[in-house]
Design a protein around this nucleic acid. Structure first.
Lengths: 344, 344
DNA sequence: CTGAAAGCGCTTACAG
DNA sequence: CTGAAAGCGCTTACAG
């Protein structure tokens, strides 16, 4: 690459000090510098196509104007969409995003946090996997600015932006109840992660508020490490046998995707044999044989808000902001009451 | 944040110069430094939890160990998967990835190239949108190391890693022909991008090699800016009227997704009314009412290869490597010959 | 075997 | 209104 022009080159050309060039180009001391000199400097900078060296700037200012994004799984469309909105907002604010994916693995998570910190990011946006609370505490102690996204720890006073998970699944379950379903099962994860357990709680609250007794057998807690077989078993047991459910709520897009595969391979029709509420906006929602009712997260709002909160945190380090954004339910054919669908 | 320990701190503690500390910690001059001193330095570094300041290192060496990835659309699962494999490989080689998405927009593309360069990335991985050939030439002239991915310009001598696009659609079309279909339509983009036009050429070659006359009406060139209405019209005209096709090949996942929506909304059954070959691995392939036959790109190999070629290019700047990787066809029910499906 | 010194390209407190 | 100088935290050619 051709040598880039530096402040020094401009200073030499104009015949002033590099300090002066720096002041002019950064619009500092505006009223204390003669218009004529400022003009000359700007012109020279243009002619030499000056691009400031961010590295040098960073070394001096200890700011990189870079944010780190550590998602749990970038292959999950929830995170890739969210990443995109975060990138948009970061860019709008003049920040560059470095991203990484922990793949729900605490060891990888630790390693990536270190990688991002060694890149001197100014702040972090983090979707922590299970078992990483200690590392979040450590970040807090180091006073590294960060905002949690999607997941959070109820015992920790940290900024976060997440879904109102309880409301989200409450909404889904209540919709099923109002559509006439009474025998409602749920697939959720066996986990300590609060955001998932809040979803489970939303299911139970909705049943309870509508005087429908909770059946332990209908709440299936799936282990992430054994996803496919456990989902297959759960779907089978919920829909077959003597006491099948009329409807299933999925607590995440991963569970929904996996569950729908099972429903399809077990030739269970939706909504004729079982109604279904899916989670997150995905291509399959509309293209599934019966378009799926699903819980919609406000991704753009989440991404923007998280980024803005992080930038605020960076400038006023003691400020804590916590947000649980409301979900909406997109109602489609997969939860159509049987009576109605027979009339069609 | 607490002040980080620097080389100076270690030097002071041990009572040597920073130079010596630098040599030891970077394993330089190994045999010319006394074991005892080296030991002491390493121990001190450990105790003080020394993390080298990458920024300072970069300023001095003019290397950031950062790669820039500029995809055409990060929301497209093809690119998000590819990004993931690239990130994996970059990480394995000790590089951090900065990514950005041009959204197929040449202006945004130009801006993002500049952003990435101002971050002093050591090299770029680029999926160029239409109308950006000039900017690629400019990068070449500046001797910025880069590798094109997914797309490339046949007139330019640049490194690239792409699909063997001709082979990919040839394979798909030939499969349809061998399955007994003769009236085969294709949805492709109206574009100057070579990778897409190679796909179209693959379709024509396959027809030609099997003595099936090419019908202009059956090759529909869709404009990206008017996607949905044009796809709707194309699907309608290909499947309705007097002279409908028996099968449709989609030239990309975007076209397939959009086309499948239309087929569904126009209640056209697959493969009963029309056989379909989709493009890329997506969730819908398996979950569509009839599992879809699709063209599979070797994403991991692409990502790894592109990253490795870039690193080679960076160390030996004149080397050009071009790769067109073969696609495979995953055959599922959507291209099942009608005769056979009637037997089921 | 070891170290003093220069320099990467900036910013900014200080002095005039 | 303007500039000389120090310094951010490293690396490395050079000298001993």
């Amino acid at each position: 690459m051709a040598k880039r022009t530096s402040l020094k080159d401009i200073a030499q050309l104009v015949g002033v000090s590099t300090a002066l060039v720096s002041y002019v180009l950064n619009n500092k001391r505006e009223n204390r510098i003669s218009k004529a000199v400022a003009q000359k400097i700007r012109k020279a900078a243009q002619e030499l196509n000056y691009q400031p060296n961010q590295i040098a700037k960073s070394l001096k200012t200890n700011k990189t104007r870079t944010l780190g994004l550590l998602v749990a799984d970038i292959a999950n469309p929830f995170f890739s969409s969210l990443a995109r909105y975060i990138e948009d907002e970061a860019d709008r604010q003049g920040y560059t995003l470095i991203f990484a994916s922990s793949d729900e693995n605490p060891q990888k998570f630790r390693k990536l946090i270190n990688t991002l910190l060694s890149r001197n990011v100014d702040g972090l946006l983090i979707a922590p996997p299970e078992g990483t609370q200690d590392q979040i505490i450590q970040l807090q102690q180091q006073a590294t600015p960060f905002v949690l996204i999607d997941r959070y720890f109820p015992d920790l006073r940290t900024s976060y932006v997440a879904l109102d998970n309880h409301q989200a699944i409450y909404l889904a379950t209540e919709h099923l109840i109002r559509s006439g379903f009474r025998r409602i099962g749920m697939l959720t994860f066996q986990t300590e992660l609060t955001h998932i357990n809040e979803r489970t709680r939303g299911y139970r609250s909705a049943l309870n508020d509508h005087q429908i007794p909770f059946k332990k057998r209908w709440l299936r807690e799936i282990s992430r490490s054994n996803l496919i077989p456990e989902v297959a078993k759960a779907i089978h047991e919920l829909t077959a046998g003597h006491n099948p459910v009329e409807a299933i709520v999925f607590a995440s897009n991963t569970l929904a995707l996996c569950g729908l595969r099972q429903l399809k391979s077990q030739s269970i029709r939706i909504p004729d044999n079982v109604a279904v509420v899916s989670f997150d906006e995905t291509d399959i929602n509309d293209l599934f044989h019966s378009p799926l009712t699903y819980v919609r997260q406000p991704l753009q709002e989440m991404g923007q808000l998280a980024t803005r909160i992080l930038l605020e945190t960076m400038s006023a380090n003691n400020r804590i902001t916590q947000a649980n954004l409301p979900a909406t339910l997109v109602v489609q054919a997969s939860t159509q009451p049987l009576a109605v669908s027979l009339l069609d």
